[in-house]
Nucleic acid binder design. Structure first.
Lengths: 99, 99
DNA sequence: AACATATATGAAATATAATTCATATGAAGT
DNA sequence: ACTTCATATGAATTATATTTCATATATGTT
């Protein structure tokens, strides 16, 4: 196949909306509707994004009545984001592309 | 601005060609021509990819005569790839999308 | 079983990124 | 200063990903 785990995984992290979802779920688990309201992202867009994140086991989901509660698989994501933040501080401070 | 460090950084890692370059440079530093020959990727494609990697300080470059020698900034990349490999083993073993 | 609410899905439209190709630049040798 | 080799760059094309919108499904309620 043409693509691999790196591709699928990092594509999620390259996407601002998916990063927003991850950030929100870092704080607390949420239903789709809660995310819609908190992030002001429309429902189907969110569902598509969540499906993609779920597919890589970046988030997981559990049913609660009619709602589906999404929560973050922190084990992988948190260390990665920490490494990038460090990288940014160390190497990308005066990069002209940013901001 | 619309995009951020996560976007620029992870977009590189989501791209199979750029991952190939990173893997090659993990072994040893190389000139563009060496990469062309080893990876069988055409020169301008490589140059574009290298520019993008350089932009995020994933690789660096030094001049040596007419050649430009690219080398990996291992500090950030190696830990990240290790984390993903672990993630893949733990969570993506029987994912139907892969292979 | 009909209905409402919550979420997911598919396909078309749109946006974004990667590739290609022609050409530019830059260093080194003559 | 001209030529060659090594690499970079820009712009048009093509490929891929995201968004949108209409609709489907699933759960719980009456």
């Amino acid at each position: 196949m043409k693509y691999n785990t790196y591709h699928f995984f990092f594509r999620n992290l390259a996407n601002p909306i998916k990063i927003k979802i991850i950030s929100a779920l870092k704080e607390k688990q949420s239903s789709v509707n809660e995310l819609v309201n908190e992030l002001k992202i429309e429902q189907s867009k969110l569902s598509h994004a969540l499906a993609s994140l779920r597919c890589c086991n970046i988030v997981e989901v559990k049913q609660k009545g009619k709602q589906r509660i999404y929560f973050l698989n922190k084990e992988t994501i948190l260390p990665i984001l920490k490494i990038i933040d460090k990288h940014e501080n160390k190497f990308c401070k005066n990069c002209p592309m940013r901001k």
